[in-house]
Design a protein around this nucleic acid. Structure first.
Length: 465
RNA sequence: UCCCCGGUAGCUCAGUGGUAGAGCGACGGACUGUUAAUCCGUUGGUCGCUGGUUCGAGUCCGGCCCGGGGAGCCA
């Protein structure tokens, strides 16, 4: 007899009175003098635990069942029956409770059945998936990832596995981690005293990628609709609830497309993610609405029903200037929007906002210069409560303009020779964006700190586990 | 990197220069088709580290470490 998941049992997919085995971890044990104990057992397959009724006629009742504590691993075999108690429809009348793994010294088990702060649980990141919250986050994270792949697959996109290690040190998205096998205590030097990277593993300086975009553009100009979905690294000294040193990013790229098509894609994509999540993880979303953020379900429902507001950067600046608000940072055409400005815009409009066409001087070299020659076809999607969730653009597809932009930002054209080649051989208008996957999970669940929506967060000073 | 707040029992916290506390957890008992059960009891401390002020420091001062929030950077 093979073990079933708690999810399949609680969903009613197994006939009552059938004898089955369920394996999982004890959440709580409650003893009744009426001659049995209740075990709440979780296997992580769904939010709810299954209730196991273990009678005192079991051979190991006093020797083992009564010794069970939170965290013990058990295999329970018995008949599925309609529950006599409130709180669950189905439970198991156990014929056998086998202890697979004890918790040694229960007083030292870090995840006791009580409220813990998320800060504390980060210190026991190897055990926090056993809590309600982290189990729910994990299932939601999976559901969103699968929904992303499903959306792209259904729309004819191909998943491109862009490299993690890159020699391009100016991808323009922030500080990078160096990848090297050189002995840092004894660095090889060139004649003029500089580090001799020709002796390094790749024969040149290499780094962890800050974006798969430049690489994925090459596949876009061959397979038309592509995306990346993988880890990304930023060596910024960022200490905020929205930043990680290692995070996952989804970056679609579409050929024969302009910024407007890019915004259309962003909107359709995000709506699909959230619609799919609401559909597939009702149990976990109900938990988030009850315990974490009471508005999360209604926020997503509203999100999938309403259209994004689209405004230009220029109009956004006007909106801020006419707001009558006192901002800490100046509002002026040509200056980047600050967090407080973005917050005002999203709160004022009350739904996701796409801000388009930013001044060229505050944006990356690869963004397409607009006809006004002052702005580039860039967009940021701002979500209420979380800020920038997507950054994207139409790419500069004209070689001469791209070269001007590279020069203006003092970038080495030789380092971008393959990127420039794309503009020489069958160049087409194309566009794409980057979606921070963890920020998407935060937006969906209301989890306040990004370190709590990734299994093992990496941030400055913290690479434990 | 800058600004603010914090670090006291396994966890969450109170403690106003004068004997180290509570709730939860764990453990023991009572009770109960129970639901983070309830009730009674027991257990539990390098007060982040370090130096100083003081008759006396968890409490005041300096330095350092760690955590949280805000800013910047961005996704």
């Amino acid at each position: 007899m093979s073990a079933l998941s708690v999810a399949s049992v609680l969903a009613g997919r197994i006939p009552l009175d059938e004898v089955v085995t369920l394996k999982g971890w004890v959440r709580t044990r409650r003893d009744s003098k009426a001659g049995f104990s209740f075990l709440a057992v979780s296997d992580g397959s769904c939010f709810d635990n299954v209730q196991i009724v273990a009678p005192n006629t079991l051979a190991n009742y006093t020797t083992e069942v009564l010794q069970l504590t939170t965290g013990c691993a058990v295999a329970c075999t018995g008949k599925l029956v309609r529950s006599q108690g409130k709180g669950q429809a189905i439970e198991m009348q156990a014929d056998a409770v086998e202890v697979i793994g004890w918790v040694e010294h229960p007083d030292t088990y870090p995840v006791s059945p009580k409220q813990h702060t998320f800060e504390y649980l980060r210190e026991v990141a190897h055990l926090r998936p056993r809590t309600n919250t982290f189990g729910a986050v994990t299932r939601v994270r999976h559901a969103l990832a699968m929904a992303a792949h499903q959306f792209f697959h259904d729309n004819g996109f191909f998943w491109i596995h862009t490299p993690i290690v890159t020699a391009s040190d100016a991808e323009g998205a922030g500080a990078m981690f160096r990848v090297s096998t050189l002995d840092i205590a004894n660095l090889p030097k060139t004649g003029d005293g500089r580090i001799d990277f020709s002796k390094d593993f790749f024969g040149k300086p290499t780094f962890l990628t800050v974006s798969g975009q430049l690489n994925v553009e090459t596949y876009c100009l061959a397979l038309s609709k592509v995306y990346t979905f993988g880890p990304t690294f930023r060596a910024e000294q960022s200490f905020t609830p929205r930043h990680l040193a290692e995070f996952w990013m989804i970056e679609p790229e579409i050929a024969f497309a302009d910024l407007s098509a890019d915004a259309d894609l962003a909107e359709a994509f995000l709506k699909h993610l959230f619609r799919s999540l609401l559909d597939s993880r009702q149990d976990d979303m109900k938990f988030f609405a009850e315990r974490i953020d009471k508005d999360c379900i209604t926020r997503l429902e509203k999100f999938v029903e309403s259209s994004f507001e689209r405004i230009t950067y220029t109009d956004a600046v006007k909106l801020l200037e006419q707001s009558g608000r006192k901002f800490e940072f100046p509002v002026k055409w040509g200056l980047d929007l600050q967090a407080e400005h973005e917050r005002y815009i999203t709160e004022h409009i009350g739904r996701p906002v796409v801000v388009m066409n930013y001044p060229k001087d505050i944006k990356a070299f690869y963004m397409r210069l607009n006809d006004d020659e002052k702005t580039v076809a860039a967009m940021d999607v701002l979500a209420p409560g979380i800020g920038e969730i997507i950054g994207g653009s139409q790419r500069e597809d004209r070689l001469d303009v791209l070269d001007q932009r590279l020069d203006a930002q003092h970038l080495d054209k030789n380092a971008y020779s393959w990127y420039r080649d794309l503009r020489r051989y069958g160049s087409v208008p194309h566009a794409g964006f980057g979606l921070g996957f963890e920020r998407t999970i935060q937006y969906a669940t209301g989890m306040a700190n990004i370190r709590d929506v990734i299994p093992f967060p990496r941030s400055p000073g913290n690479a434990d586990f």
